[in-house]
Every structure is written in structure tokens, then in C-alpha cells.
Design a protein around this nucleic acid. Sequence first.
RNA 1: GGGCGAUUAGCUCAGUUGGUAGAGCAACUCAUUUACACUGAGAAGGUCGGGGGUUCAAGUCCCUCAUCGCCCACCA
Length: 711
Amino acid sequence: MTRPDLTGPFAKYTKPYEAAAVEGLVYAREIESGFFNPDKLPARFDNAPTWTTIMPPPNANGRLHAGHALDGTLKDVIGRYMRMKGHRVLILPGSDHAGFETQVVYEKKLEKEGRTRFGMDRDQLYKEIYDFTIANKDTITGEVKRIGVSADWSRDTFTLDPQVVSGVQDTFVKMFNDELIYRGKRDCNWCSKHQTSLSDVETVSKEFNTPFYTFKLGEFEIGTSRPETKFGDKYIVVHPEDSRYKKWNEGDQFTAEWINGPQTFTIIKDDYIDMEFGTGAMTITPWHSAVDFQIAQRHNLDMVQVIDEYGKLTEVAGALKGLRATTEGRKQVVEILKNKGLILKVNEAYKNVVPVCYKCETPIEPQLRDQWFVSMKPLAEKALAASKNGDISFVSDQFRKVYEYWMSNPIDWNISRQIVWGIPIPAWFKNKGTTEEEFTISKEQPDGEGWVRDADTFDTWFSSGQWPVATLGFSGEDFKKFYPTQLMECGRDLVFKWVPRMVIFGLYLTGKVPFKDIYLHGMVLDPKGQKMSKSKGNVMSPIDLADNFGMDALRMALLVGNTPGNDMSLAEEKVRAYKKFVNKLWNIARFVFENTTEADHDIEKTRSPLTERLFAAKEEIGKHIEDYQLHLASEAMYHYIWHDFADIVIEEIKKTLNNPEADEPTKKTARILLRGMFIEVLKMAHPFIPFVTEEIWVDMGKKELLMVEEW
RNA sequence: GGGCGAUUAGCUCAGUUGGUAGAGCAACUCAUUUACACUGAGAAGGUCGGGGGUUCAAGUCCCUCAUCGCCCACCA
């Protein structure tokens, strides 16, 4: 057969597909159309139902990583499909000031410059971090756009946008009035390096090899791995039913030689004590241990601060005051007790698991501090019910269990952070830190003299927890139109940090769950299955991969074989394989352009074995997407296009076109069929590989974008 | 200490109500101006981690063991 020359706009089909030359232009064309905005879709969407998902806002302090690319790809595939199926789709993008995280990043930068945040003017520090964040926010936003997410950038939201800040503060005021927030001295996770308290999700457990000492205290034997906290101990706690200590009654006292001389101890009985552990007797240090604090509260005991916020011993330590508690302090206490003959045993092989700051790994020193706490129990009960009764459902059931465990064991949430980078807590004090302390909860400065604003800022999860409500304006038009949303898709690492809080705030603020389905994807690992990290040097930049192989190829590599909730390892060869696939489609287009010029015909009614398989594949793909089984959907699409459309359909058509005995009407029918089927192929591929399909679509002579075609 | 996940072809992984094993990559054989070598055709490759059970039938359900990974954790 004669081969028509491809000229003009078709000349590019004589060469392999060049993603770099196409992607930016396609995305610009899509943005320009306005169709990412559900209010600006073509007329056929006028009375369409909405379909909404809110994007997890990436931290505005770094670069895009492979996890973000997966995140954006998954929701974009579903979003593009739902749009083609006739929904007014809203994918709402944003970015997070990421309070503590960003401050840590900035502190490292300051350190490199030989500076420190301590002693810096608050406003100056805030301004510096603000400028730093805004610059990075633009970088990361540009990188999210490269993924091709069909997000409505006209609704782009930043967690420090004035209406978000204002709404978050309103929530605090409302919760305080509803008695869901209280202020009080409670044990906090204190990081002595970062000089702030942290919530439980901001600490991680780490195992240390610490000697375990057994001391003689009067006639008791007391075990501890933390001798340096023992200065202020005045109580011996035993189990009420422990027969070894029957002769002692609660409140009985005795005096014994201790670190700084004779000390009087009081017997306390509490059934927290594990009789099997050690001697079944312990002393308590309420100021520096959450458990001890609870016991002390139950029995109304004295609490003494032994270690200050810099990790040094206080005046309770007498001569040892000012020593670093866990190092020199511990050493000297042990020395003193040894000299007094009070050490009975030392177990050097003892392994102790202690919480550390998740950023710097400094062991957390529990401290009693006045902070703002959220009473989690009443909130968690409702959020638990939402899962039990099916208002929210998890794509992977394993995460439902984790979520329900968290909601069944709520711990009151400390939302105060002693850092400048964050949303200010709308609280005002008089005589702060004294016994005459007074406070008022208000966004505006209260009337009267002497009010000082609370210097603390909110835990970043306090604002991002309200994200689905905040991005939709808390109330008003968008809120009415799009809330509750359909899908929350984010990394599985957020099952504790973020998801439960969004459900809690959603229910509290609106009475409705913020989303119906929760799709938690696994982590993207390196080719060896190891977690990517800067320190290991195995980070694969999605931007670099897209530069080399095209974003469509990367999207496919992230989708195929990636089951919901399971981690996946990403190798360059996989991306390369899908680059070939994208090129295959490109060459299919070339074949179509070389052989057909006929006007498009609807092949819906042209039933043949070839079209039956096409429509069956399309239906299967659609079903898998609706079931959130994107690994199956993407594979079915790949398989159909390569091994059916290319290998069978085109070969059949080719036979007809090359058959010297076939008459012209027969050939024409074949050409029309080819073109008609190809249009369906482009539609079925579009959600997965939007760039190349949109580009070919234009060359098909289409005026409207493929993204708004009917699936 | 508690929980979750994984274990299937050399590698990375699919396999959704139980019905005689699938894909991609790699390797092997063949094809050289065919829409496409970023290709096509073909062949090869697995006692589905071990053991036990339910069933007419188990990769799939149940029990148990092993190994690896992840998460949670206030025994001083």
C-alpha cells in the first residue's frame, strides 16, 4: 500500500514520542480551558452531581518526592474518570505551612549560618520563615502541576491564608466554649533541644541500652533506669493486694537514708503496680512521668520538678544542681548512692524503650506544663461510630482496624507549641505563670489593661485536621456544594496523624463526616525495597524520572502492580517499560493518521467481535476504577491497548486495507471502524496517561479537550 | 509486650464471592525498510514459605510454625 506522508502537525508522529515537548503545553491548555474548575465545565455538566476530593497539602518546605507523585496520580486517575463519567469534579489543591516541621528545617538553615532562633526577635524570625516558606511553596506547587493533576488551582489554599487562620481560631473558641478544650498542668512530651512540647504522634519510640539499678530504700528495694530523677521522691507505691507489704498501710511513713541525706517516705497503694515486676515496689516522679503523674493525681500527692526545660537538674538536686540530668547527673547520683552502700544490683543488659523527638531523636523529658489540651474522648467516640456504622469506609480493611484502635484509646491532645511558626492561639493572659494567672479566649485583645497574647502557636495538625472544612470555606457556597467530599486519598503514614483528626473535626464542626471513602496508599520504596531517605542517598526524584521518561510513563509505573495500602518499590526499568507503552500508543496514532481521513463515526452500534472486546475492556477498566482497584484498571488498559488493539485490531484492519481484492466501500468501513475504535482507546487511556492522549486528541481534529469527553 | 502486612516464575508484583497458575522486566530462539526495534512472532520458566485441617475441589477459607518488613506501646 502507498504510505501517505505525514506533514504539518502530523510530522511529529514520524518520530518517537517526546514527552518533554508535550506535557507543559497540554497542561497549560487544560488549565486555560477552566475545566479543572467544576463551575466552569461545558453545558452537559450543568446538572451533574459533584465529586470532590481534597488533596493532602504538601509541606511548603521542600521538594516533591515519589510519594507525592503517587498521591497525585491516584486521585487524578479517579478524578479524570469521574469527570468523563459526568461529574462536576473538584480536586482541591493546597499547601501546608507545616509548623514544627518547617521550623525545624529553618532552624537547620540558621545553624548552618551560625545563627540560632533562641534570642531572635519573634517577628523577625516569623518573617524569615514566612519568606522561606512562600518561596518553597511556589516550587512545590509547580512540581505538583507537573504530575498532571487536574486540580482546581483557582481554589488553591494555604494553611496560613487569612480565612483559614481565622476559621481555625474560631474552632478553638467554639471548642473551648463547648468544654472540649481545657488548660492545665499535664505531663507533656518536652523536647529539650527544640524547646517545645510535642503531641504523642510527634514522638517515636527508640530502644536504649540503659543500666537498670536496684537501690535499697529503708527496707524496700527500688528499681529504676533513671536514678537522676530520684531526688524529689517521697512516696513508695505498692499494690494494695501485695502480701509482702501487708504490714504497711496507706499513709504510713518511714525515714531512710537517701541521695542528699535522710528523707521521709510515705506509703501509697495503687493497683497500677505490677506485682510481678521487680520487687513490686516503686517510687514515683510525677513531674517527669505520665504514669507517675496519674498515680499522684489519684492520691493527691506533691509534685516536684527535678529537671528543668533545658534538661538540667533543679535546686532539688542540691549540690548537683545545673548538671545535665541524663549524663553527668545520673553518673553522680549513682556514685553517691554507691558510696552510701545503697546500690544492691546493676543490670547492665537492660533494654529500655523511651520516646524521642521524631525530628532530632532527643529523648523526650516529660514535663508538667500549662498547655491547651483537647479532650479527645467525646470526639473520638463519634469518630469511632462513623467507622462502625459505615459512614466512612476504608479501601483496605487493615486500616479500619488501626483507625478504630486509635479512636478507642484516645489520649488528650496537647495543641500548644512553643514555636513562632504557626497559627497563633487566640488566648490572652494576665499575670501568666503566677498563681493569679487569668486568661480569656478571644481572637481580639480583651478590654482592660495588662492582657498579653499567648505566645504559643497551634500544633500544625490542629489546622490541617480541619482541612476538608477549611478549604471549602467552613460554610458558604463551596461548602454547600462540595461537603462532604467523596474521597480522601493519602499515604498510610497519615492514618494516625491526619485522618482521625479530620474525621473528628468534620463531625464536630459540621455534624457530617468529611469524606466517605478513605484510600490509604503505601509508601514508595527504592528498587531494593528500602525506604527512601536523604541520609541513605536513595531518593528518586519524580521530576527527574519524568524528565527522563515522561510523566505519563511515571504515572503508569506508579499505578500498575501497586495494590491499595501495600508498599511498592520503584525501579527505573519499570518507568522505562511504560515509556515504551506511551510510545506504542503514539505509533498507533501514527497508523491511524496515515490511514484515515474520514470523519468520525459513532461505533457504539457497530457490533463486531473487535468492538465487543473494546467495550468489555472499557467497562472492566471503569469498574476497577470505581472499586479503587487502580492496579487492575491500569493493567487492563495497558493490556487491551497493546495486546488487543495493536496486536489484533490493527493487524485485522491492515489485512483489509492491504487486500487487493477488497473493494473501496469495504476498505472505507474498515477505516471508519479503526478511527472510531481509536477514539474509544484514547478515552480509556486518558485518566491514566493524560498528556499523550490529550495531545493526540487535538491532532484528531477535536475542538474540545479529551478530559471533558463522555467516557 | 500488642497489632498489621508480606512470603507465587531469575527480579518486581497481580490473582475481589474457592473451580486444573498470570503480567511486566530479565534471559532464550526466530523475524530486518512492517504504524512502531521505545518492534513483532515463538518457546522456556512455578510441588503458590513449611506442616496440618475443612471441601468433590484450596494460591484463595481455618489452625499452626518459620522468616522478613511495618506500626503502636506509660513494667517503674
